[in-house]
Simulated scan of single mutants.
Amino acid sequence: MKYIILNKPYEVLTQFTDEAGRATLKDFVQVAGIYPVGRLDYDSEGLVLLTDDKALQHRLSDPKFKVEKTYWVQVEGLPTEQALTELRKGVYLKNLKTAPAQARLLTEEPPIWERTKPIRFRQHIPTTWVEIKISQGMNRQVRRMTAAVGFPTLRLIRPAIGPLTIENLQPGEYRELTQEEVSKLQHLAGASAAPKRRR
């Protein structure tokens, strides 16, 4: 089995082909037979896990197994405690309410790299970094959540999935997981999958 994590750069599709000629995973990872676990938006950056382990891929992609994903979100403005509380309780995106999230302000900018296209700068509007942790995977969920509480996302980075982090990986770099990391991931993904015993 192959297990790889990539630090996906900005404006790269989380797939291996694109008829429109946009950048894809193939531009960075030349390993046959592996596929991304879940997705990370074209305009988002950070950790993407790739594997040929179909059982693990299914469990990590399925919200019922509650594998936590961490996001660093640069938002426009300074989120209020009320906005953070709403994120923690869950917000409505159209007719669906998100599951409760963990959300906290970061007191300083996280250890990140320069983006290839800088975010738009507005002299009189501050920006703030927020850490959000969720186990769902709705389309563009984090961006929609921050917008729903009044603070649009300017930049979105995923530094971690469960125990895996992109520490020491620059955009476009990847590495194989250690056996210890694979074991932790399998344990995490399978922890809630064990059948309940009948009494």
Rank of each mutant, 00 (worst) to 15 (best):
K2T: 14
I5V: 14
P9H: 02
Q15L: 04
Q15R: 10
E19F: 00
R22F: 05
K26F: 00
K26V: 00
F28Q: 00
Q30A: 14
I34L: 03
R39P: 05
D43V: 09
L47A: 06
L49K: 04
L50Y: 10
T51R: 11
T51D: 06
D52E: 13
K54P: 00
A55Y: 03
A55D: 15
L56A: 06
L56Q: 06
Q57W: 01
R59M: 14
L60Q: 02
S61L: 01
K64P: 00
F65H: 14
F65C: 02
F65M: 03
K66G: 00
E68A: 14
E68M: 08
K69I: 08
V75W: 02
V75Y: 05
E76W: 06
G77Q: 10
L84T: 08
R88G: 11
G90S: 07
Y92P: 01
T98P: 07
T98C: 11
A99D: 13
Q102H: 15
R104F: 04
L105H: 07
T107Y: 06
I112P: 02
R122F: 14
Q123R: 15
Q123V: 04
T128C: 11
K133S: 07
S135M: 06
R140D: 07
M145K: 12
M145W: 05
A147T: 09
G150E: 01
R155E: 05
L156Y: 05
R158K: 12
P159K: 07
I161E: 13
P163R: 11
T165Q: 11
T165P: 09
N168C: 03
P171W: 04
E176F: 15
T178Q: 05
E180K: 15
E181I: 13
L185Q: 06
L188M: 15
A189Y: 08
G190A: 02
A193T: 04
R198K: 14
